[in-house]
């Protein structure tokens, strides 16, 4: 699973340009599903037919990114964020475009750190003129953090674990499924989550499932002077109670808890103050779809160095597999 995860995090998938991730996922799952297709926004929908309830799973393929808005006379690129990125985390950071062009980010002269905003930052791709830069990059191109997958033993450090970790969990759970076909399962690898849960909205409308589960990362409260939150790395995947996009449906949440206890899979309960996930869009679709979320605890979300615990990841796969093969009400 580490190999899979490494493959997923080292590719880039800015919101609206998730094709590289989609290709990896497609190759991984195609032998395990009955049907596989893309919709108008680019969501990858993988269907595994079954008898029971229609359950939609969603993990998003996109990651936070930057978009070029202007190329100046000297060949420096000005940019804006796509999704939640903080300007001070970008200084000195390297970024990579889908063409392979690499650049570094720095800032104009400032007196104090708090003056730092996106208008003060630029990307330097080593071009010495506008013309040279324009041969490599165009306005509208997107880039992502340029970072390697780092295996710290039990912990993993990488960019875009939000939400490639979720993608990896869904792929692995799917690959583990036996041929018992208890429920009809829709594995949806969504697009544009980071800019407003957009892919989940249209795919849920199309599929109109009985239940929805998002597989995503969540914050933790186990770092120095962190906000109050009873989620830590290494204590198992988290079953969502609420975030700002969804109050997990009690039926879904309780079923997940019940299964975790039955199979003695470690789990935590998640109350996330700020932040949303695809379940937020799914549960408000059409007549309402009872939804919940399975979260992988993750430190430093949206930074170039997100950290998860490998055992949490494996437990998430185990739990998800059990959830999908349970008899739903």
């Amino acid at each position: 699973m580490k190999t899979l995860l490494q493959k997923l995090v080292e590719e880039s998938g800015p919101p609206g340009a998730e094709e590289k991730i989609r290709d990896i996922v497609k190759a991984e799952v195609k032998d395990y599903v009955d049907e596989i297709f893309e919709d108008a926004l680019g969501n990858l929908i993988c269907v595994r037919k079954g008898e029971g309830k229609k359950i939609m799973l969603a993990a998003h393929m996109d990651e936070v990114a930057l978009m070029v808005t202007h190329i100046d006379e000297q060949g420096f690129l000005r940019f804006t964020k796509v999704g939640g990125v903080l300007p001070h985390l970008l200084v000195g950071e390297r970024v990579i475009f889908s063409s392979g062009v690499i650049g570094t980010i720095n800032h104009e002269k400032i007196k104090e750190l708090k003056e730092l905003d996106f208008s003060k930052l630029y990307i330097d791709i080593g071009a010495s003129s506008k013309k040279e830069a324009e041969n490599k990059v165009a306005v509208g191109d997107t880039c992502v953090y340029y970072r390697q997958f780092t295996d710290l033993g039990r912990r993993i450090l990488a960019k875009s674990l939000d939400d490639r970790a979720g993608c990896a969990v869904m792929i692995s759970a799917l690959q583990k499924l036996k041929d018992d076909r208890i429920n009809e399962l829709y594995f949806v690898f969504t697009v544009q989550e980071e800019v407003g849960l957009r892919g989940a909205k249209t795919s849920a409308y199309r599929l109109d499932p009985d239940f929805g589960i998002a597989v995503d990362v969540t914050r933790t409260g186990d770092t120095p002077e962190a906000p109050t939150m009873a989620v830590s790395l290494g204590k198992g995947p988290a079953i969502k109670v609420k975030d700002s996009s969804v109050l997990a449906h009690p039926q879904v949440r309780d079923l997940m808890i019940e299964i975790a206890e039955k199979y003695k899979i470690p789990y935590q309960l998640e109350v996330l103050e700020r932040g949303g996930t695809d379940a937020g869009a799914i549960h408000l679709t059409k007549e309402g779809i009872p939804s919940g979320a399975l979260s992988i605890p993750c430190r430093y979300i949206h930074t170039p160095s997100e950290m998860i615990d490998y055992e949490d990841l494996q437990s998430a796969v185990n739990l998800l597999e059990k959830i999908l093969t349970a008899r739903w009400p």
Binding site: D39, N43, T69, T80, R198
Partner: peptide
């Protein structure tokens, strides 16, 4: 030309997310 700014919104947002998604 391109609109070199990413704030603001138009009808396109809601239209593109209607039903199953509209390019």
């Amino acid at each position: 030309q391109y609109r070199r700014f990413t704030s603001g919104a138009t009808d396109a947002g809601n239209i593109s997310l209607s039903k199953e998604g509209i390019p």
